Amino acid sequence: MKLLVVEDNKPLLESIKGILEKEYSVDTADNGEDGLFFAQQNIYDLIVLDVMLPYMNGFEIVQILRKEKVNTPVLFLTAKDSLEDRVKGLEFGGDDYLVKPFQAPELEARIKALLRRSGALDIDAGLKYDEILLTGKENDVLVKGVPIKLTVKQYELLEYLIQNTGKILTKEQIFDRIWGFDSDTTIAIVEVFIHQLRKKLEDFAYHKDIQTVRGVGYILKKA
C-alpha cells in the first residue's frame, strides 16, 4: 500500500516517514503545492495531511481533491486543538483528525482504521478478487487455493489492480504508484509487468481479466 505524507516541519516529516515505511510505501511533500500535485495523481491509499502548509493549506488541498472526485482518505495533522478546526476539516472532506503532538502508535492505529474503513485493508479476510486472494503476509497470493510466487513489484501491481476492480487505471497512474515519481526506469516497464502478471495467471484463466484499454491503460474485470 502507498501513502502520501504532506508536512512542512521536515524533522517531523522524516520521523513520520520512518514510522510508516516499515509497513507502507511512502511519498512525502513539504509544501501545499507539491502535496496537491502528488495527491491529484490518485495513486495513494491514504494521505496524511498537515493543515498549516506553505503556499496552500491542507483544507484548500482537500477541497480541491474532493471537487476533482479524488476520494483518497485524508488524515489531518494539526497543532490546533479547537473544535472549530476539527469540524472544518471534516466538513471539507477530511476523514479523521490527529492533534500534534501525537505518539507513533496512535498515528499507526488511526491509519489502519481509515484503511479498513475505505476497504483498502482487511486484516482478517485479505484482499480478494473472485478466487484470487492476497493475504498480506509476505506477499502471499493464492489463486483457486493454489499458492503462486510473485515478485514484489508483480504483487504490488496485482494489489493495485484488485483495489481498483472495475476502474480504468492509466499507465501513468500505475507507473507512479508502483515505481514512483523518482524512478530511473521508464513508463514502458508497465507493459512488461502487465505481461508478466498475465503469464502468472494464465494457468488459472485470469489473464483475460486484466484488460487493455487502448491508448489509456488497463482495467481488471471479468472478461
Rank of each mutant, 00 (worst) to 15 (best):
L77V: 00
K80R: 15
E68Q: 15
Q154G: 06
K69H: 12
D30Q: 07
D95W: 02
I178K: 15
L133V: 08
Q103F: 10
I47S: 04
A79K: 00
Y218F: 15
K100G: 03
V190R: 12
L201D: 09
Y24L: 11
Y218W: 14
K208L: 14
I61H: 02
G35D: 05
I148V: 15
E60M: 07
V5K: 11
Q63I: 04
Q163M: 09
L3R: 08
E159D: 07
G93M: 03
A39D: 02
I194E: 12
E191R: 15
E84Y: 09
E106A: 07
A113V: 05
L142P: 01
E191D: 14
D182Q: 15
E156P: 01
A39Q: 03
D203P: 09
V70S: 13
V70A: 13
I61L: 05
A39L: 05
A29L: 06
P54G: 08
A205K: 14
D85L: 05
G180N: 07
K67G: 06
L161R: 13
F76S: 00
R198M: 08
A113T: 10
R214F: 09
Q41E: 06
Y155S: 03
D45G: 04
N71L: 13
N9W: 10
L107P: 03
Y24K: 12
F38V: 00
V48W: 00
E68G: 11
L158G: 09
K22Q: 12
E33W: 03
V87P: 04
E14G: 01
K2P: 04
L13C: 07
V74C: 03
Y24S: 09
V192N: 12
E106Y: 03
L115G: 09
I61Q: 02
V74K: 02
D85S: 07
H207F: 11
Q173F: 09
I47E: 01
S25R: 10
V146T: 12
E68D: 14
F181L: 15
I111S: 11
V141N: 13
D203W: 10
V213P: 12
G166N: 10
N42L: 09
E60S: 13
P147S: 08
S183Y: 13
P54Q: 06
V146F: 13
G18I: 05
Y55M: 08
I148H: 15
I111R: 12
S82P: 01
Q163C: 04
G180A: 11
